[in-house]
Design a binder for these strands. Sequence first.
RNA 1: GGGCUCGUGGUCUAGCGGUAUGACGUCGCCCUUACACGGCGGAGGUCGCCGGUUCGAAUCCGGCCGGGCCCA
Length: 873
Amino acid sequence: MISRPMTCGMELSDQLPKTYEFAKVEERWQNRWRDEDFYFDRNSKKPHFIIDTPPPYPTGNFHVGNALNWCYIDFFARYKRMRGFNVMFPQGWDCHGLPTEVKVEEINNITKNDVSREEFRRMCRELTIKNIGQMRQTLRRMAFSVDWSNEYITMQPEYFKKTQLSFLRMLKSGYIYQSEHPVNFCTRCETAIAFAEVAYDERDTRLNYFDFDSVEIATTRPELLAACVAVAVHPDDTRYQKLKGKTLKVPIFGHLVPVVRDEAVDPAFGSGAVMICTFGDKQDVHWWKQHNLALRKAIDRQGKMTALAQKYEGMTAANCRKAILSDMEEKKILRKQEALGQRVGTCWRCKTPIEILSERQWFIKIKPDEILDAAHQITWYPEHMLRRMENWVEQMEWDWCISRQRIFATPIPVWFCKKCNEMVVPDENDLPVDPTLTKPEQACPKCGGKEFAAEKDVLDTWMDSSISVLYVTGWDGHSSPEIFPAQIRPQGHDIIRTWAFYTILRSVALTGNRPWDQILINGMVLGQDGFKMSKSRGNIIVPEDILCKYGADSLRQWAAMGATTGSDIMFNWNDVVAASRFQTKMWNIARFVLLQLDKEGIEKNVPVTSLADRWLLTRLSNIIGKVTDAMEQYQFDVALKAIREFAWDILADNYIELVKGRLYTKDASRRSACLVLYTAYDAICRMLAPFTPYFAEECYFYINKTSVHKQPWVTFTYDDPQAYVEGDLLVKIVGDVRKYKHDSGLALNAPLGRVTIYAPHTIEDAGDAARTLNADVFWRTDTAKLDRIVTDIEFNRSVVGPAFRKKAPAFMNAIRVLSPQELVNPPKLITLEGTEVLVPDHAFTPKFSYMEGGAKVDVISVGDVIVTIQKTA
RNA sequence: GGGCUCGUGGUCUAGCGGUAUGACGUCGCCCUUACACGGCGGAGGUCGCCGGUUCGAAUCCGGCCGGGCCCA
């Protein structure tokens, strides 16, 4: 059967533009591809593959870091579809949170208190919707095969009602509780934050030494004097033995505090006596709990001094510090000040130093064992990232504080009876609710009261995003969804301690099961200078810039090849340019292949007999296996590298060069080459499809008139060990003779004369070598009648080493003194330190110089093949 | 200070027990009927340093030095 590509009356090769214009191609396919092709089919019988995609924060800009992450997702999503999976690649948007609130305040030049809560929320929603719109465009342009029917937006009722449902469920099961407890608090954002949201900054401060009722105390935070609840010293510190059991009078404020003894006090730091305040830092919290100390709140939620600070009331903490220091100076109790570098916990969003305040907050119980247990059931790529999770879980100290005192977030669905303070929750069927806008339908079940106070606190944003996997799999509060757990979670290593951790916690708490089978961690994208991208460094690269200059496929190739999956990756224009060049090369391969197939069409059942043809098929089969294995392990760099190497080196530079001459003939063997070209080309297109969807589609469509993205993954195999070895030899011989030509100053297509190849057995190359070298080529199996002189010996250490161990050097020395005849035909035994030992096969190869009785014959040796060249006179 | 990671030609990168992979750059030759956005070839590395294990180490072990990330 001969099938000719459909050509609409024109030859295919005429249709193919000389250069590949990515901008036109991308636009065309973007308009032609349909969203429905990527929809997850809930009724399908195919095995499902659910991806718990990260919902990005809708800033309006999809950055390069996101791009890397999404490229990985798209690579395996497309690959899995080709492997017959029913893939769900949802796209979420994690809307709630401070940055949007801040942005809204900035854009409208207001503060959140200037408008009603509802109005403020409306403004936040509006901005978010606009930003999502912008980011969707970039996603589409990057050709991510997103399932838009499974898009979710956490601020929308259908999503946050699940967040609220999960809250009620965990409240019921005892995971969630309220408590007055010290929490990290950002006084600028006026909200509690979790440990995961605390960043640490290096700052310079002063250590102030002052007289504390005749005891010298050193502190960096004199403004907390009003909150002082004890003085602590090391139990063994001889300087302070007499203070045992005493109380001291706090300077300026005058209240009495106990002296406590604690091993954790560092006698070498400051004066060795430290004041404990509620709360200067985490250590204070420890001591406070351990010694059961009083609670004195000197700083409020705005970061201002409370009434407890007496005359300093209303000052900011910073001003209070100045004022107290100057008062101390006046009273002559300030003794000295030292410069001190310290690390300050700050709010990761706004960089304001955090305070530790004791507040009534909502918490989720952290049960390290069940989280670790689930984490160990998940396969981590790369494996070592699991360590980060373990380390984080093992050192958790407080429970997760989930309440926030902000506006744009999921409301906590709770009221309190004004009469008896009983907590009342809505019926699950009434969700979502905003308790500040509605009231419970029933009277208080405890006292019958009808007046309720709404919980004004809202939920931490991670409460929304940590149920992404439950949402997409259709969790309804009753049991594990049928398609839960998901197959994979792709995400960055920067959010292992947050998103991954919280998701595992919530899945276990709500379903008793792990959230996913696998987790794939991607690295961070660094600027071209090797540093994290930042405005101040001016090293930010935006995806749009790359898309405009080199196109989506080049950017995607960079993502695949820039680094081993999981490691940080430096952005590098070179790699993008190299990727674009590969497309150019591949495009020319396409043009060549189509030009050849045009001539006589493709004959799909022609026997493939020529050595070069069989050789290419073995190499193709080999590369397919390699690429498939790499894809299964998410080693995109390995996979794409193998594809590129095959297309460029093996197919273009070796195979095509070898069979070109044959293709220009009208021999029957030309049809075999055509079939091989078609097979290889088809396979490359399909293997490239996950990586370069536009390019692969364009190449594939020209020849098959159908979408490559609807084809199955390549599973072609071809086993012919003899062709593999002999083909390699043929390629090597042709390459070496070419090099010889080059070294002799000949053009590569210049006539060469007579080339005789003495190979150990017959090789039938169908005349490929002769045409390629432009020479008369004679294959012979007899021995060349040449004088040869041994010039060197090459040892095969992987044979010599295991065979002789410590005696290897002695063996090699013994071989070196053999006669030339013996080197060519080695003896079976050799004497080594008085004992006879066996000479192993392939232990060494003699290197020869050739002469032929004075005749002008150049000789090249390729392994044990000898090639003589007699140039045209 | 702890954990995790990394240190390979000018730059970036693969390898992770048997004499070092590729890309970019650089130099030379070649416009050979797919491709000069190409082909062919060359130069360039004591694989951070010091020890150890081994017949043999970039590769394993120990120590040191230096980056990065996360956390105290």
